[in-house]
Write a protein that binds this DNA or RNA. Structure first.
Length: 254
DNA sequence: GGTAATGTTAGACT
DNA sequence: TAGTCTAACATTAC
């Protein structure tokens, strides 16, 4: 789930449920997923403080904490999310950390595969991935995007989109979706794209990242479903690129 | 039981 | 140097 649009949804969920509430306890159920502090220091630090309005950078969610310069940063890995629930009921299977609030509710940080991380930092640039992170795709201008493509002509276009040091927040699923909607084959080299294709790619990238849930002709549901192209009805193909399985339609993507 | 899964990184290779 | 590939991390669902 957690690529840019998903982290954005999680950020909104967090802001809706979990900010400006006094934290009365923190239960760390999987200690080694916390970085920047020991589990016990992390817990002690947060007690009697409040989360503040969260922001996002790439696939990371960042929240300030009351009466402190420190920030808590969440990364969800390949699986994960939040669940805000009344304390004591409706357990989630993969709760790794729970933040208990004084109103009798708790925020559960779920992380099935334990590839996620939670950081306590003074500066987000202490996190290497963030320090090296490229541009936010929804904040850059078309010219910036074209320049980036020009800087990496030998990179295949799917690898380009997924490279966090170039463009932040796009992963395996959304790179496929963007390339499908733009009609571009994932194995194409960035340098081989025509001007028109580059502009088209930029527009589709923005559109999909902003409207992730309301496109009828999405390829996403078909990748592990009927394997039929939602545009032409033809059979989808898959290929490994940069170590990830990429789905595409050989008729609609060139 | 083998395999792949919406992520990231280190190290080897071309 | 730039870019790609492989393995590793940990766990689960098909």
């Amino acid at each position: 789930m957690p690529e840019l649009p998903d982290v954005e949804a999680l950020r909104k969920y967090f802001n809706r449920t979990s900010i400006h509430r006094i934290i009365i306890n923190v239960n760390v159920e999987t200690e080694d997923l916390i970085h920047g502090a020991s589990a016990e220091d992390f817990r002690k630090f947060l007690i009697n403080r409040e989360f503040q309005n969260a922001s996002r950078r790439g696939k990371f969610m960042i929240t300030n904490v009351s009466n402190s310069e420190k920030k808590v940063v969440f990364h969800f890995g390949m699986t994960g999310g939040f669940h805000y629930h009344k304390t004591g009921g409706g357990e989630n299977r993969h709760t790794r950390i729970r933040f208990l609030f004084e109103n009798g509710y708790e925020l559960r940080w779920l992380n099935q595969r334990k590839l996620g991380r939670v950081f306590l930092v003074s500066d987000i640039n202490e996190i290497e991935t963030i320090k090296n992170m490229g541009s936010e795709p929804l904040e850059m201008e078309r010219g910036d995007f074209l320049d980036l493509l020009q800087e990496h002509p030998r990179k295949n276009i799917k690898g380009f989109l997924m490279d966090q040091s170039i463009v932040a927040g796009i992963g395996n699923i959304y790179s496929d979706e963007i390339l499908f909607q733009a009609g571009i084959m994932p194995i194409r080299k960035a340098g081989s794209l025509k001007k028109k294709e580059k502009r088209h790619l930029f527009e589709k990238m923005r559109y999909i990242l902003k409207n992730s849930s309301n496109i009828k002709e999405f390829i996403i549901p078909h990748r592990h479903g009927d394997m039929k192209c939602p545009k032409c009805g033809g059979e989808l193909k898959s290929v490994k690129i940069i170590g990830r399985t990429s789905f595409y339609c050989p008729r609609c993507q060139r």
